[in-house]
């Protein structure tokens, strides 16, 4: 059992090792197929940071992921709460529609959406067409939050009502504090969704290199700047790094979130 685990672990870990080793090789050696660097060129990392635009990509990724997460959480919590705790006509339909939009490939509706953002609102060439819609609820986040809110016992809410709290105060004063783990998980998911998003920036930011994100910039990194594999691998690690750092700090919320997706099985 243990040998299997070690063998499988190699499959998971070795790619990181190879990527790292290549990232410190010289231009020539990166093309040679060697596994171990002759000399350790730490300057490759400096070269990546000095690539025109690289720091802008960082800033844009942070902007997109940061604002996107904030907007999503603020707009999705009340909707999820209503769907979890209110009884009203059409509730099941609303739920079905939320799940449907969650399952829908974004490519289905992207063209008319793009036309509106680009031709009517002239906002293409920026990340706003990706950020603004997040202020209007995100189906996946709504669904996950609802699943989480279902687990909050009714009695807590009713006791709040007895205390004379309005619904909004119940939400902010009681539900949100209790739902912190769920909200944290949703926020993390949304943050990584934005951080990793490639399709969105490709549609809306491609025409303006000043609005590129890390994920989008990385793909064009190799071709647009005629660089070699060593620098590309260094850049790749630099794109992975923040996600992995955040993971180690927020490990619990992460695992919580992932289990949440399946918890209602």
């Amino acid at each position: 059992m243990h040998t299997t685990a070690v063998a499988v672990a190699l499959f998971f870990v070795l790619p990181f090792v190879f990527v790292f080793l290549t990232s410190v090789m010289s231009d020539d050696q990166a093309m040679s197929g060697d596994l171990w660097p002759h000399e350790w060129n730490w300057s490759n990392y400096a070269a990546v940071f000095n690539t025109p635009g690289f720091l802008d990509w960082w800033r844009n990724s942070l902007l997109y992921a940061g604002l996107g997460t904030l907007f999503t959480v603020c707009s999705s919590v009340p909707v999820a709460y209503a769907l979890a705790k209110f009884r009203f006509r059409g509730r099941r339909t609303a739920l079905v529609l939320v799940i449907s939009t969650m399952m829908l490939p974004p490519q289905v509706i992207v063209i008319p959406m793009y036309l509106v953002w680009a031709q009517q609102l002239h906002l293409s060439g920026s990340l706003w067409p990706l950020i603004i819609p997040m202020a209007f609820g995100d189906a996946y986040s709504i669904f996950l939050l609802r699943q989480f809110l279902l687990t909050i016992p009714k009695e807590y809410l009713e006791s709040a009502k007895v205390d004379g709290c309005g619904e909004l105060r119940t939400l902010l004063g009681i539900v949100v504090p209790m739902a912190k783990p769920g909200i944290a998980a949703v926020a993390l998911f949304q943050f990584f969704y934005c951080w990793n998003d490639y399709f969105g920036p490709q549609i809306y930011a491609a025409q303006n290199p000043g609005a590129w994100t890390l994920s989008y910039g990385l793909e064009s990194f190799k071709s647009a700047h005629s660089v070699n594999w060593n620098l590309t691998m260094a850049a790749t690690l630099l794109v992975m790094a923040p996600v992995i750092v955040v993971f180690f700090f927020a490990q619990k919320a992460f695992v919580e979130g992932v289990t949440l997706t399946g918890v209602k099985g």
Binding site: V8, A9, F12, V13, P15, F16, F18, V19, T22, F192, W195, N196, Y198, L214, S215, Y216, L218, E219, K222, W229, T232, M233, T236, L237, V239, M240, V243, I244, F247
Partner: peptide, 21 residues
């Protein structure tokens, strides 16, 4: 942790790495 980490690699980065590897 070892089995979980790669899931966190941004898809573009993971793909770039695999194409190279």
């Amino acid at each position: 942790t070892a089995f979980y980490l790669p899931y966190l690699a941004p898809p573009v980065a993971a793909t770039v790495a695999f194409v190279f590897l």
